[in-house]
Design a protein around this nucleic acid. Sequence first.
DNA 1: ATGGCCGGATCTTCCGGA
Length: 256
Amino acid sequence: MKIATWNVNSLAVRLPQLLSWLDTEKPDLVVLQETKLTDDKFPQAELSEAGWHAQWFGQRTYNGVALLSRGQAAEAVMRNIPGFDDEQARLIAGSAAGLRIVGAYFPNGQAPGSDKFAYKMRWLDALREWLREELEEHPKLVLLGDFNIAPADCDVHDPVLWAGQIHCTDEERTHFRALLGLGLHDAFRLFEQPPKLWSWWDYRNLAFRKNQGLRIDHILVSEALKPRVVACRIDKLPRKNERPSDHAPVIVELGG
DNA sequence: ATGGCCGGATCTTCCGGA
């Protein structure tokens, strides 16, 4: 069973690449971020034609998330964090294949001290408190998506340059550790990994060619699922496409 | 050559992203 997350940075632009990637990689469950599409524009027909069930939750210009599944449609689908009043479409959760899947596009935060940073902190508080309950109801849970947090200096191409910058602040990293404190595990770090492997590279400055990036897209698995994780990897290939997303997909493989 | 982007909404120019 393969579960993947990909920030596609506009599904309208990236749909052909997504369909091609799905055909190649053949995951079972996929969450997408930054679809940037209102719900009426979601490419349900194209995905259905390719054999995918889809649930989606979008808005104009920014944000937007989706949950794709093969075989059966996800059930008990939730959109955004219950009880957290939010105008932005950032989270979709659903049950499939005996798992609870929570796909999220965490706020960027822009800069420490900004209003957007304060919103990011509030959103993270609400996410954690909701997940605490969700984990009790659904012990087999996967939280995955674009976290917009580089958990540690080894997740940053130049930790000195990025020290204290957005994605790398102590406040954000404390929130990431608090999620782990719920009994979640960073699937990527369950394995020996090559150094300097990132999930995002800036479009500017030839960052991908120079491998200047951050690891900010993550897959967290619950305690009950940890023994089933057999692999976790970042797929850099789509970043080499013409007109790529600036993010790479991350894939976890579950056995059992 | 020491800087180089992208997508979306419009405004041929800006904002936000990370």
